[in-house]
Design a protein around this nucleic acid. Structure first.
Lengths: 341, 341
DNA sequence: GTCGGAATCCAAAGCGCTTTGAATGATTTC
DNA sequence: GAAATCATTCAAAGCGCTTTGGATTCCGAC
């Protein structure tokens, strides 16, 4: 079923049928009703390819995910993010186009997405400091929203971010207040912007308390379970073992917890742990009482906000930068306690 | 830059330029070379909307994910799956279209996807027994591949699945051989096909050993960490506590491990655990020695196979059903040991 | 009566590509 | 040397929709 056939059935022109269905005022209410009925009865749904070509809008948003070296796609954090974004797209009748690409192909992918005209805008994931993608997208004139920020110069593009620096500063201070002095930081990959900010917060808190952190206690790696396990175990076996861990992700923290347990210690009593909790659906931080003390911020909600912001930008055709800075909530759970000599 | 301009620059017709770029033989090598050079120099990439309309192929594959009640999308297993599929799409110049929809809208979404012509085929996720989506897709004539199977009648559609029944039968027998008799099964949601098959394997092993499993030890729920924790803890506190757990997912197993630890027991010594390991990138089952004894099968690889199968079906225009049944590997880790009286 | 303007509707152009069917030279065949 | 063949190239139609720029009809107003 297509427009041509449908209008033949109705005895109307394609123009009128198209207008009737798209809510234009130049068509009488009587005919509009009739058209809608017949369209429904014949399961008529406009061919999107044709519609896109005619309108110049593809009604789709692109998400380009680094897939090989940096395995962002498999990061459960990402899954929750696109789940939130997808909700918004569904409500607004948009599609989500996912491209999983090797790092080296990233620029080419964006260029293609823009030239092929298969999307109306993109969400940029996992920004690094001074991320080249941002310059590229501005040059291409393709609307975009960054999930996170890319370095200090973040006034001239749109983004949604968590106040990572503040979160980790507070978390570190919280541990200081409990009496901890040797606090390990198990962070995400060095070149990720959020990791830099979190480190910044961690360092700021140390400065404030007049202390220099032990560089051996600060590590930056991919946020997998086994990294958390191995690194924490290593640290716990050192002479200058930490009494507390500040961990960038729930996944890594699960590894840290395993390490603590394997080292014969008890989390919350012998060793304190504070995590950043993205409120992952499949890894909730306890049900009534939080398992981990955490700086909490829903990444699913961030996905919703990014998507909504991008759709607004596209609809309003207004590229002036918008920003949303989310504050995390510090929730105290069972994984922290006063420092035991 | 578009075809029209490009052909004007070249002093050729659109026909010739199009053919030169698409590798048709009716164009001399000299002109083809020239065309390719100029196209590259001007960053010419054909507009996909127009190309789709003209060819009738959208070069995109749809993945429809239940998003609200059943939160499949946020299942980390899913993330690894689409990562594998995405690889194959990228190699074959296809896009991935992700639709996250409420369960109630699922049928409508498939109809739309088909009518809107925005995809050339779809992957069906999380099949239930006698899944209505399969009938629908056949009726619509939209090529598809199911990840998993939907009940016993699985000869007449294409699928890629793990031999779940056999996996869990072997795993159960493995525990029997170690002397365990009270074996708990912490399974996925009842109506999911894979959960049924795993239960089937678990029951078959029991029958073989002439034992009836305690129904209180068999649970079916969403595969989150906290479900694993709460259910395992409940069971461990019962009079007739199990000595071993058979767990459907790494995520749930992490909760089970936490419960065992909280119950003051040691996994591998006091309580044995066997899991199904989908080889999730962010939750690897140990690096050298496996943490958990597991029936192992890479879901990322399953994603690759599904994608490749679907692309083949579309390319060959041959809808005759194809099947791949993957066998899992039983790897013995540190989470199992002989039954201690 | 005629005119102007609403209210409806329509024919046809256009979105950027592929593809059919035909034209143009160049080359071969008899 | 004319006819037939081949290698290249092109003009134009078509994919299914939107949208521009009229047409047509029907009114009340003058």
């Amino acid at each position: 079923m297509n427009l041509k056939k449908l209008s033949k059935i109705l005895g109307l022109s394609q123009t009128t049928v198209s207008r009737a269905l798209n809510g234009y005022p130049e068509v009488s209410e009587a005919t509009r009703k009739k058209v809608q009925e017949v369209a429904l009865a014949h399961h008529y749904i406009p061919n999107m390819r044709a519609k896109s070509l005619a309108t110049g809008r593809s009604m789709a948003i692109g998400h380009v995910i680094p897939g090989s070296t940096r395995r962002e796609i498999v990061n459960p954090v990402f899954a929750d993010f696109i789940s939130g974004a997808g909700e918004v797209y569904a409500q607004n009748d948009h599609d989500m186009l996912l491209s999983i690409v090797a790092d080296s192909d990233e620029e080419r992918t964006y260029r293609q997405l823009s030239a092929k005209a298969s999307v109306d805008g993109v969400i940029v994931h996992g920004p690094r400091e001074n991320d080249p993608r941002i310059t590229l997208l501005k040059e291409l004139g393709l609307p975009f929203v960054v999930h996170g920020r890319a370095g200090d110069n973040h006034g001239d593009y749109s983004w949604v971010d968590v106040n990572n620096r503040r979160s980790f500063e507070r978390a570190t201070e919280f541990l200081f207040d409990l009496g901890h002095r040797k606090i390990a930081l198990i962070n995400g990959l060095e070149f990720m912007d959020f990791a830099q900010r979190r480190k910044g917060g961690y360092l700021a808190a140390h400065r404030k308390h007049g202390r220099t952190p032990d560089p051996e206690l600060m590590i930056s790696e991919e946020m997998t379970e086994d990294v958390g396990y191995r690194r924490a175990l290593d640290m716990l076996n050192r002479a200058a073992a930490p009494s507390a861990f500040l961990v960038s992700s729930m996944i890594t923290a699960i590894g840290v917890r395993r390490a603590i347990s394997d080292a014969g210690k008890k989390m919350g009593r012998d060793i304190s742990v504070v995590i950043h909790d993205d409120e992952l659906s499949y890894l909730p931080n306890g049900v009534d009482i939080p398992i981990f003390t955490a700086t909490k911020s829903s990444v699913r909600q961030a996905g919703r906000l990014c998507a909504q912001m991008l759709l607004d930008i596209i609809r309003e055709k207004d590229l002036t930068p918008r920003h949303i800075l989310l504050e995390s909530e510090l929730t105290v759970g069972e994984s922290t306690g006063a420092f035991q000599k």
